[in-house]
């Protein structure tokens, strides 16, 4: 018997097949990064907790009813006007800031608001209270939260541009890349405390 040579399998198309599979996985892979509006819930108050008395003018009341309509400080408002109204309220600077560790922060020196005595005293005293109905749509609720956050972001950006010549977003990005940089950290903290985000979610009104 003559030994026959086993013919070699042609592997030339293997690369094509592998490429095909590769492209399939490339397309189907979703590197889905979870992102969202971050919130910090308040701690559960002890049973004998007496909430501090807050002056009416330091509270910016936003109501969303079950038909997804907005009521801001007692007046109806369109969503697109909410950001400006919130900015005006936060940036008012009509009085003294809150007392921290026994030291008064004094009047707001960086505020550009109208210093209206019937509006907020200082950004660190200005509280935005969002009350929604149980039947309010979640999408609307997020939109409102987003507008309020935008108001804060714009104010922070403005202040950071004035003080450090960069926007707050850039400052934060730079800090994230270089966590140990003390001067960056100080800048970020400074802007953050100048315009602290105080958005509280009031207990929603019930349907009945």
């Amino acid at each position: 018997m003559a030994r026959r040579n086993t013919p070699e399998i042609n592997a030339g198309s293997m690369a094509d097949i592998a490429f095909l599979l590769l492209i399939f996985f490339l397309v189907t892979t979703t590197m889905d990064v979870d992102s969202g509006i971050s919130k910090k819930l308040s701690e559960k108050p002890p049973p004998d907790y007496v909430p501090p008395v807050i002056k009416e003018r330091n509270i910016f009341e936003v109501n969303i009813n079950r038909n997804n309509k907005l009521l801001v400080e007692g007046d109806e408002m369109e969503l697109k006007d909410l950001k400006e109204a919130a900015k005006k309220f936060i940036d008012n600077g009509g009085g003294e800031g809150k007392i921290e560790n026994g030291v008064s922060t004094g009047p707001c020196t960086y505020c550009k608001g109208s210093k209206d005595p019937s509006s907020s005293d200082h950004p660190n005293k200005a509280i935005i209270s969002v009350q929604s109905d149980r039947l309010t749509e979640y999408g609307m609720y997020i939109k409102v939260q987003n507008e309020l956050l935008r108001a804060y972001t714009e104010l922070r950006n403005r202040l950071a541009l004035e003080k450090y010549n960069v926007t707050y977003d850039e400052l934060e990005d730079a800090f994230k890349k270089d966590m140990n940089n003390a001067s960056l950290k100080k800048k970020v903290e400074d802007i953050k405390t100048s315009y602290p985000q105080i958005i509280s979610d009031a207990e929603p009104t019930s349907a009945n």
Binding site: D34, S35, G36, I37, S38, K39, K40, L41, S42, E43, K44, I142, Q145, N146
Partner: peptide, 9 residues
Amino acid sequence: NALKLSLSS
């Protein structure tokens, strides 16, 4: 006491 929250969007 799970206070950190993210509303995914």
